[in-house]
Design a binder for these strands. Structure first.
Lengths: 181, 181
DNA sequence: GGCTACATTCAACGGTGTTGAATAGCCAGA
DNA sequence: TCTGGCTATTCAACACCGTTGAATGTAGCC
């Protein structure tokens, strides 16, 4: 049974999404979400049970990058790297927020699921040749490493030589996993 | 001025190190650290000022992997990957704990510093040829991606084909950044 | 013994997630 | 129109959190 009026639930979820992405899981309190939604501080828990459940339901969906995958597979490596470097601000906060909250069991599950459904699986279906699954997983690790270096570590000097150089070099490595081995 | 008896400080730091690595930054409370050290719940903050300062001082140092770097550079890529896959349990909890606490300012700084001093700099000094700095940073990202996939995401199927295959394939990519371009 | 300086404890504050009871608001039936 | 009940929302309280400043113990020195 769903509790609460639909609009109130939506207001809470909207406020939660904004605050969690801005301040992180620990930094955004349930009461701050409630007051941003204009309701009593206890209502979010009443509706969603726990802060973690609220967090998971409030998370935005992954941006859709199907077009990226459907293009020419011969330069998918470079395009993928470029996508990470030039993404429009939707992926980065989601990635960082999930990552840092991933020590609570269900959030870790969600991160694993997103990694699987948005990186590994789409890549695997587009790979021809042997060991497609392994190559997709290694490619996903490679992409994760770029996001890690840029966003978690904050290695600003990585881009000092210019985005193009990174796109070419890191993209070339990624491409070797994409090309049929 | 350092406050407190040296043994009491050490007891607190030891308890803090164990609890932070086991339960994470948020999961280990200051009071739980204090009671594990056998002191009053307010003492850790009295000594170290804030939970974050206690955390930073309690963190273990990075394992020393100099021998790994000093070996034959022609197969450093594979050896590096093998080191991550077979590490003895010191690096992984430190990496995970730092990563997940990296949204508080000083912890992010520490993560950046460790990334720089334990991955980028040692690699860079061993690289010959042009663009050593960039190649070291890309190599560090690659290594980070492996740790991310294995430890944060928990991609267990990555090793389904056997450690050797991962060591060979991912190591080969890493090696391309190590070899003079 | 009394004084001092320091190590440690105690008590309290505001904030947190979470809980169950109390209230407010609406809608059906007499 | 009144009344009952149902549901949405609020209120009050709990235990725990990081943090603070005052109180207490405790050792050594004159």
């Amino acid at each position: 049974m769903i509790e609460g009026r639909a609009e109130t639930r939506a207001a809470i979820l909207d406020a939660a999404r904004a605050l969690f992405l801005e301040k992180g899981y620990a930094g955004a309190s349930v009461r701050s979400v409630a007051s941003a939604a204009g309701v009593d501080g206890a209502l979010p828990i009443h509706y969603f049970g726990t802060k973690e459940a609220l967090f998971l339901q409030a998370l935005p969906s992954m941006p859709d990058y199907q077009p990226l995958l459907e293009g020419d597979p011969d330069n998918l490596g470079e395009r993928f790297v470029r996508y990470i470097l030039e993404e429009d601000g939707h992926l980065r906060p989601l990635y960082l927020t999930l990552l840092r909250a991933s020590d609570t069991g269900a959030v870790g599950e969600q991160l694993r699921h997103l990694h699987e459904t948005t990186f590994v699986e789409p890549l695997e279906t587009r790979l021809t040749g042997p060991d497609a699954n392994l190559r997709a997983r290694l490619a996903a690790a490679l992409v994760g490493g770029l996001m890690y270096a840029l966003w978690v570590v904050g290695d600003e000097q990585l881009l000092a030589a210019g985005e193009d150089v990174v796109i070419r070099r890191y993209g070339a490595l990624l491409q070797q996993l994409i090309d049929p081995a």
